[in-house]
Write a protein that binds this DNA or RNA. Sequence first.
DNA 1: AATCACCTCCAAAGCGCTTTGGACATTCGT
DNA 2: ACGAATGTCCAAAGCGCTTTGGAGGTGATT
Lengths: 343, 343
Amino acid sequence: MNLKDLAASLGLSQTTVSRALNGYPEVSEATRKRVAEAARRHGYRPDSRARSLATGRAMAVGLVLPMTAKQEIVNPVFSDFVAGAAETLAVHGYDIVLSLATEEEETNVYRSMLSKGRVDGMIMQAPLTGDRRIQLLKDLGMPFVVHGRVSDHDDEYCWMDMDNRHAFQEATEHLLDLGHSRIALLNGIEAMDFAHRRRDGFLDALSERGLSVDPEIMDSAVMTEQYGYGAALRMLALPVPPTAFLTSSLLVAMGVQRAIQAKGLRIGLDVSVVTHDDGLSYLPNGSADAPIFTATRSPVREHGNICAETLLKLIDTPKTPPYHTKLKATLTIGPSSGPAPSV
Amino acid sequence: MNLKDLAASLGLSQTTVSRALNGYPEVSEATRKRVAEAARRHGYRPDSRARSLATGRAMAVGLVLPMTAKQEIVNPVFSDFVAGAAETLAVHGYDIVLSLATEEEETNVYRSMLSKGRVDGMIMQAPLTGDRRIQLLKDLGMPFVVHGRVSDHDDEYCWMDMDNRHAFQEATEHLLDLGHSRIALLNGIEAMDFAHRRRDGFLDALSERGLSVDPEIMDSAVMTEQYGYGAALRMLALPVPPTAFLTSSLLVAMGVQRAIQAKGLRIGLDVSVVTHDDGLSYLPNGSADAPIFTATRSPVREHGNICAETLLKLIDTPKTPPYHTKLKATLTIGPSSGPAPSV
DNA sequence: AATCACCTCCAAAGCGCTTTGGACATTCGT
DNA sequence: ACGAATGTCCAAAGCGCTTTGGAGGTGATT
């Protein structure tokens, strides 16, 4: 049943039926009722393509699943991020069109997005340092917002990001204030742009207090529990082991925790752990009033909300200058960090 | 630049240009070259809506983000599943259209899918017991496949599932064979249909050996690390604590592990742990040759592949009878399970 | 009684593509 | 040399919706 048939069955024109259904004022309340009723009865569902073709709006935004083919890992942050974005978009009647970014076929990456009209804008996640995709998106001339950013060209596009540098600086200072001077950093892989900024924050805090860096207690890898466990185990076996760990994700912190326990040490007493917490719904850091880890927290679901919000604004008024949101993470003190043990 | 303009600029008809671009045989190699070149030069991108409207195929499938508004948790399995689905779909040129399922507006759940033409079929995830959405999908008359199933109406629709019952039966038997007779079950929330079947497998294995069940060492909740930790701690404090735990997810198992360590017990020696492992890429169970936990494993990314494959088949030949795939999980022995301690 | 504004509705022109049903040359078999 | 087969291209009809630019009728205003 299409609009034409529906109109015919009512003895009305398509125009009137369309207007009645879409809430335009130039149709009497009586006919509107009649039309709505008939539509319901016939199970009429407008064709989104036809509508989109006529209106020029796709009512959908694109999202690329951040996944480099090499390391077949899916960003654990993805599901919460997308939930946040979808949530906000749904309110405005927008859908999300997902596509997979594999590095090989870089040119073909945005295949579906390349065919015009499928989406009104795009959200890009997890940019790498010097990510070429940003230029690609710019060339496409489609509104887009980046979750995260690439340090060099900050001002030329729209992004929303957490203040990674500040968060890690603050976390480090927290540990320094507790008397720790030998702090290990377990970072994410440094191809991710945010990892750089996190390290910078860490290093800034150290050098501000005149502390130098020991590369032996700095590592970076894909953020898994295993990684945290292995790296912590190795570092704790050093002649002068770190008294504190700063990790890039809760999962890594959990690995560190396991290593600490395996060594027969006590977390928060013998060894402190501070982590960043993306606020993933399935991986909560204890509860709000009783966190497990001391953590800089910035829920990624909220990031999704903001990215969506920003993109919608951009779609509405395409000529707005590049707009940025920088979120501050909140430092929550938990039992995992305590005064440095006196030697 | 649209097809019309492109054709005009070449002095050809739209028909010819369209055919040249889409690889139809009735166009000379020379013109095909010329057209392709011009298209590239002008950056011509066909409008997916117009094409879809003309062909009748959307070249996209719908996916509902499984999320009940109440428990604001995003299924951790989602990202890997969707990666698998996207992977397979991309090969065939299909996109994924995501939408959010909130329980409140049940009727409105498939809003975007309801507007015809956006997708050619749907994948539904994480069905609840007696899930009404399946009937809804059937009524829509659109091809769909369910990841998981609802026990009662197995045969009326297309699904792919893991043999949850068998997996948990096997896991339980493994523990029984090791001499454990007091086994705790930490299940997922039982609103999820698969949780039922897992429990059934567990109970079957027990009753086969004439063992009865102690409800005090059976629990079910959202599968987080915290839950595993808390439940295990509580159960280990019982007068007759369990000597083994069977958990529904790696995250829960990690929580159990933490509780065991906190109690000063040794995993695999004092207390055994067996878990199901969804093979999430960001939460690996050790490595293939050195697993951390004894686990029944069935990578959910593969589930995504299969669901997509199945759906594509269904879209191609809509009249195929309901088609089912049941995957067997593989039991991998790790150091987390060992002989029951002699009393 | 004539004018005006307003309300309610409609015909038809797109939106940009695919595809049907030929048209017009050119080449082939005999 | 002639009809048939083949190769190459085209005009135009959709696909199902929105939206422009009126048309006709009603009641209020002058």
